[in-house]
Design a protein around this nucleic acid. Structure first.
Lengths: 347, 347
DNA sequence: CAGCATAACTTATGCGCATAAGTTGTCGTG
DNA sequence: CACGACAACTTATGCGCATAAGTTATGCTG
């Protein structure tokens, strides 16, 4: 790779002159020389060494994207399409702004921050990372951080967050389900934190508002680890028979449940109504097509990146950005079956 | 961020000594000093400045991952789960080896190579990038490159490729379909290049071997752009009625087709048999569960990264690594219906 | 025409690190 | 006990770049 020094030597001028041309400081260089240098740069296809440039300028043009792996899901159930879409949105935005994206996937916040310091990234986008440990991060790390889908109170004090009105999303969906005539509605998720909890709250709120009592057993907790998934699914199917509808925390779980129910001879929505959340292709391609709550994941990535970029320019940004949610009514929620429907195993 | 120089000053020793401790050159530093430095490093949480290190050593510890966006697909039909899984495998492997991953998604090979030169990455993993333009790349770029799923003859001369026996995959699947009693089998894809072409060849080969004539119209070419998709799908459904089975080039298309057929009242596999390729969750969660050709996408990423890592260590690697493929027989392929099945629109 | 601003350059310096090349002092050996 | 070997350091240099500070030559002002 040719260096400025080399170019300067060949052109018999100083490195500063070459550097000035590269940086478009036209006032500093005569028309004539500028043309010569430009042409030469073109000819040799000069590309700056970013390490040197960053070292000299103390910036990096890198935006770190750290994903605290939904690691368990990686390992078994699947690869979330969520991640691909999110990254796609972030990368595109970052790239168009002349930055680069360095991806780091881990469960260990410590490690992530170490990597961040090492690379001296200009800013950070975190997904799924801000628990209590994330706070320590902020103390050490002075540069802009934007979080995605964080509900940590502590974290929100320090960082910008791009999220969703998760609560409202399920609230509206469950309200819709109720309006269809259901009053025995379960909620299915694998945990009670962050996003899942917010969605759960929306579910609770809708029930309450309709005067439907919530009992603890109405929370269907799936265990997605591959060793247990079959057993867990069996239990989910069995327990969901006590309900006329299930509000699932994600499209993935909605479709997983539908598959399992279908395998046991339960028809949807005749046998039971199912609603999802996310609106990814899993639900849109399934038949019957999934009734779900839409969110624009790519947009989430884009907004997160844009927000960070603004902060890098020193602009003020809102502290919490909440993207809208929208009901997508398709075919998996209808009026409830008249009689309850035990004993599907004999089917 | 504290520097070596600063540490050396505070400890009243030379930077070389500190540097030696950092690099574990134990022979160069006395036991006593070593302990002092170690402790101090720990205390101040020293983290090296990678830009400086890279500049000094002329390496980067970065592996560039360039995806030539299946850009049109991004825009409409989907986000391929393929990408997420691939990246997951690559990132994990790279990270465990102490490297970092820089992601770059673009359609412009020129831009990608420019970025590569700029960052002076130690090696490159390319996905979907090696067309004719990719060759120019190799001329300029002297470091190891590993491609994924490349079929470019020119490209293969220069780079290692990690791929799949795509041809064998469809060959075996179509053979299986034929063994079920089908003899009117269509092939569905959106293009005739690379991977898709290889899969197509397998299909042709199986037909030929069974003495089934192939006509050009047996190639069902779907147009996945969002403006056309509905119209295209309508055509696909119509045309597929001339067949008793459709071999789809991917699970995505298989499931898309099944959805569309289902919407038109065609039952699967009773009305028509469908086979896919990839074995992702789209097909495994759909009901009826998709009969498909399995490939381990994450493993593909892992192997690509491992191969590159080996090359970085100077080890020789095979020039072409072909991962195995496996038939996954589920529920969408059975013996064909007895009569052909026109006029589904009246259904 | 002295004095000074300015255009158009060059030289010098430092970013943080790695490392080659020096400088001590100590010890063992013949 | 002289000398080389070696341990345990330090000093000096350079990676490629950006840039502050210096140097000319030229033109303009009063």
């Amino acid at each position: 790779m040719i260096t400025i020094k080399e170019i300067a030597a060949q052109l018999n001028m100083s490195t500063t002159t070459v550097s000035n041309v590269i940086h478009g400081k036209d006032g500093e260089v005569s028309e004539a020389k500028r043309a010569i240098v430009r042409e030469f740069l073109e000819k040799v296809d000069y590309v700056p060494n970013i390490n040197a440039r960053n070292l000299a300028q103390n910036e990096s043009k890198i935006i770190g994207v750290a994903l605290k792996a939904r690691a368990d899901k990686y390992e078994n159930l699947i690869m979330d399409p969520f991640v691909a879409e999110l990254i796609g949105g972030i990368e595109e935005t970052i790239r168009n702004a002349g930055y680069f994206m360095m991806l780091y996937i881990s469960r260990d916040t410590e490690k992530i921050m170490r990597y961040v310091s090492t690379w001296n990234v200009d800013g950070l986008i975190l997904f799924g990372m801000i628990g209590d440990d994330g706070i320590r991060v902020s103390a050490r790390y002075k540069k802009p951080i934007v979080c995605i889908d964080t509900y940590s109170i502590e974290g929100l004090k320090h960082f910008t967050n791009v999220g969703l009105d998760d609560e409202k999303g399920t609230y509206e969906m469950v309200k819709y389900i109720i309006s269809c005539g259901h009053n025995r509605i379960a909620f299915m998720s694998d945990n009670t934190n962050g996003v899942d909890y917010a969605r759960f709250c929306g579910y609770r709120k809708a029930l309450e508002e309709a005067g439907i009592e919530y009992k603890e057993e109405d929370f269907l907790k799936i265990r997605p680890r591959s060793e247990e998934i079959e057993e867990s699914l069996e239990e989910m199917c069995l327990r969901s028979m006590d309900y006329t509808a299930v509000m699932c925390v994600s499209d993935l779980y909605a479709v997983t449940l539908m598959s399992a129910l279908s395998d046991r001879g339960i028809r949807i929505p005749e046998g039971i109504s199912i609603a999802g959340f996310d609106d990814n292709m899993l639900g849109s391609l399934y038949r019957p097509a999934l009734t779900t709550v839409h969110q624009d994941v790519k947009q989430k990535g884009v907004v997160a990146a844009q927000t960070l970029l603004k902060q890098l320019k020193g602009e003020k940004t809102e502290h919490q950005i909440t993207l809208p949610t929208r009901l997508v009514i398709r075919d998996t929620v209808t009026t409830p079956r008249k009689t309850s429907f035990y004993g599907y195993k004999n089917h």
